[in-house]
């Protein structure tokens, strides 16, 4: 029995994979993107969210079997609609044993993982083999810039992406569009070049930045001070569409 830490379970999550599904948010992330809209998901420890209406504890330690039981309670809905569970975060791959153990217990339903791709290849491989769909976030291809904004090098991420493409597992590329950070045509073209040959790429999902992402920083005692202009709208280029990749804006 493996234990993990989660910070939210959302029923009827409609942007996170096929059918009716529940999304589990795992707490803790090795990246520290300044545009993160779930800043309470960055720390691996429970913490208080403080708002006008009161103080709530964010972060629940849970065993993989307990989580599986909770998720499988709605198995009937998942089975009749081709849905299931999506793990996101935080970075779910940062709790590999918990995630792997959990995925093995929910075999009968559709499983999706949303990841930054930041994990050792061995972990990534095993998790990919256990899921039906990967939502793979790609932010910036340039490694220096990636490090500057997210705090980590993207070498491992690109390696995992290559593996994902070669594995032919169904995947969706998710790209947050941050004004002045990665919303250039060059960056999009360079992402395109990474995935242009992918056979199992279902589509690209663009997530334009919205300043409501800053809403929760105060609640965890952080100051929201992104190194870009949050009031600016990101540029959107039709790079993927122009190259016949199905693209949607979330």
């Amino acid at each position: 029995m493996k234990e993990g830490i989660i910070f939210s379970i959302e029923e009827f999550a409609i942007q996170d994979g096929p059918g009716i599904r529940t999304t589990v948010f795992l707490k803790g992330c090795p990246l520290s993107c300044p545009w993160c809209h779930n800043p309470e998901g960055i720390s691996f420890e429970p913490q208080y969210l403080i708002s006008k209406t009161g103080k709530t504890l964010c972060g629940e330690k849970i065993s993989s079997s307990e989580l599986a039981n909770r998720i499988l309670k709605n198995k009937d809905f998942f089975e009749s609609t081709g849905g299931g569970v999506t793990l996101t975060g935080g970075e779910p791959l940062a709790q590999p044993n918990f995630v792997i153990d959990f995925l093995k217990q929910v075999e009968s339903i559709h499983k999706t993982i949303e990841t930054s791709g930041y994990a050792p290849l061995s972990v990534f491989k095993e998790v990919v083999s256990l899921v039906d769909l990967v939502l793979f976030d790609i932010k910036i291809t340039d490694s220096e810039s990636h490090k500057m904004y997210t705090g980590v090098d993207n070498h491992m991420i690109l390696e995992n992406l290559n593996y994902l493409i070669s594995s032919e597992k169904d995947f969706i590329v998710r790209m947050p569009l941050i004004p002045g950070v990665n919303d250039t045509k060059t960056n999009m073209l360079s992402i395109y070049s990474l995935i242009s040959d992918a056979k199992s790429l279902i589509r690209v999902e663009l997530l334009p930045y919205h300043k409501t992402a800053g809403a929760k920083y105060g609640m965890i005692g952080k100051i929201y001070d992104p190194p870009f202009d949050p009031n600016k709208r990101p540029q959107i280029f039709n790079v993927f569409e122009d190259n016949n990749i199905n693209t949607i804006i979330l």
């Binding site: 009827f12 409609i14 059918g19 009716i20 009749s80 609609t81 849905g83 979330l250």
Partner: peptide
């Protein structure tokens, strides 16, 4: 904001059907 695209409408449709079933 939940219902941005056709896919989300299909999911709402699935939810309604589940209620009926």
């Amino acid at each position: 904001t939940v219902f941005k695209n056709q896919e989300s409408l299909s999911k709402l449709a699935m939810l309604i059907r589940s209620f009926i079933c």
